Amino acid sequence: MRDRLHGKEESAFGLSYAELGFLMTVFFVVSGIGQAMAGFLVDRVGPQRVLSGGIGLLGVSALLLSQAQSYPVLLAGSLLAGLGNSVFHPADFTLLNRRVSAPRLGHAFSIHGISGNLGWAAAPVFLAGIAQVAGWRFALLAAACIPFAVLALLFACRGHLEGPPAVPVGPRPVQREGDGGHVLAFMRLPAVWMCFAFFLITALALGGIQSFSASALRELYGVSLPAATAGYTAYMLASAAGMVWGGFLASKTDRHDRTIAIAFAAAGAFALLIASGIVPAWMSLVLMGAVGFGAGVAGPSRDLLIRAAAPKNATGRVYGVVYSGLDIGLSLAPLMFGALMDASHPAAVFVGIGLFQCLAILSAVSVGTRSARTPPAAPA
């Protein structure tokens, strides 16, 4: 699909792959910086306003991109899209923490993650399908309709997003270090930066899978392009299924680091098995699904682990700073794994993916150990 879209862009603007790649770099850099800033804004003015503003920016960016006649306008559209994308994690997770009771949070985080996976899977089909029939500009116009429709839905359902927070279950927790004082006090907590490191590391693995897993499978096992693409599809679908099960697991335990450790250990082992090249080609596609399932199982526990590390009344700031590591990792991964592919080392791509997933276990266990020593924070 990337090649087809590149052909359409090239005929309109004469852009190279590097210039198109720079547009994505702008998007991720702005989104990463914006997430940290959006977290502070969420804690100050509320998550609903910030979420609505970000969705509106996404709609405006799609409109701008659909009418672009020059590369600077494309850059401006990417910048606006990055700003719009930056609000989701701090705003969404603050809303979920405020409006969902503690026993149901694991399931809520699971549904949140599944929705994102389904959106990532549907977007190429939606955009490429319309672009083939009516052109890429009309496809972007159609894409702009989605955020504006979501804005209307948020307005219609605003009563479910406003009001007092959900009543926590159990005894009221004591105030934690970093709860009060300066607005940046939470940044003194080692657990926050361990969560940031966890997201950075896991994003490096995810970026390798998204960018070059299909290409690496083709070179390593000699499978066709449709088969290699099916391997990535298996990863995404299995990841969504893993999130469903992960939601049930997360609701039954407070030691979310253990769930993450087991899930990522399995995923990392499967990735290293793919890298070995000793399995049949068809089995490599099955193992891609197994890697995705392990990563999906860890998802809800990952988000609850961050909640446990967040000081009271700093939920938005913590999620904003921590999730900025996701954008940083996704922006660095294509450079790292692309260099391995350029050097004709497809097996090293899966070795790197597996090692990053195993390395993430260390940061998750560290966060879980620190959080276990301190009572969990109440919903903001």
Rank of each mutant, 00 (worst) to 15 (best):
H160D: 08
A142M: 13
A152D: 02
L151T: 04
F138L: 14
A142P: 14
R158M: 07
E162P: 03
P164I: 01
P165K: 05
E162F: 04
P164F: 07
P164S: 04
C157A: 14
A144H: 03
L153Y: 13
L140T: 02
P165E: 10
E162M: 14
L151K: 10
L153R: 07
A143S: 14
L154S: 02
L140Y: 15
V150S: 09
F155A: 14
L151M: 11
H160F: 12
L161T: 05
A156T: 08
F138C: 01
P164T: 10
A149V: 15
P164L: 11
P165D: 10
F148N: 03
L151V: 06
F155C: 03
A144Y: 06
V167I: 12
L141E: 14
I146L: 15
A139G: 11
A152V: 14
A139C: 02
G159S: 11
A166G: 09
L141M: 09
A166H: 03
A156Q: 13
L151D: 05
P165T: 07
L154P: 09
V167T: 09
V167G: 08
A144Q: 05
A142Y: 07
L161R: 00
P165A: 15
P147R: 00
L161W: 12
L161I: 11
R158P: 07
A143I: 01
L153E: 00
G159M: 07
A142T: 14
A152T: 10
L153N: 09
L161C: 06
L161E: 06
A144V: 04
A166Y: 09
L153C: 08
L161K: 09
L141S: 08
A142V: 05
A152F: 13
P147Y: 04
G159Y: 14
C145R: 01
L151F: 08
A166S: 13
L154C: 10
A166E: 06
H160Q: 15
R158Q: 15
A149E: 11
A142G: 08
G159E: 04
C145E: 03
A149S: 06
L161Y: 15
V167H: 12
C157R: 14
P165M: 11
A149Q: 03
F138K: 01
F138M: 12
A156G: 05
A144W: 03
G159C: 11
F148Q: 02
L151P: 03
H160R: 15
F148G: 02
A166I: 10
E162K: 09
F148D: 01
L161F: 14
L153D: 04
V167K: 14
L161P: 07
A142N: 12
L151I: 15
A166C: 08
V167R: 15
L151W: 05
L151N: 04
F155Q: 14
V150T: 08
F148M: 01
I146R: 00
A143V: 03
F155M: 11
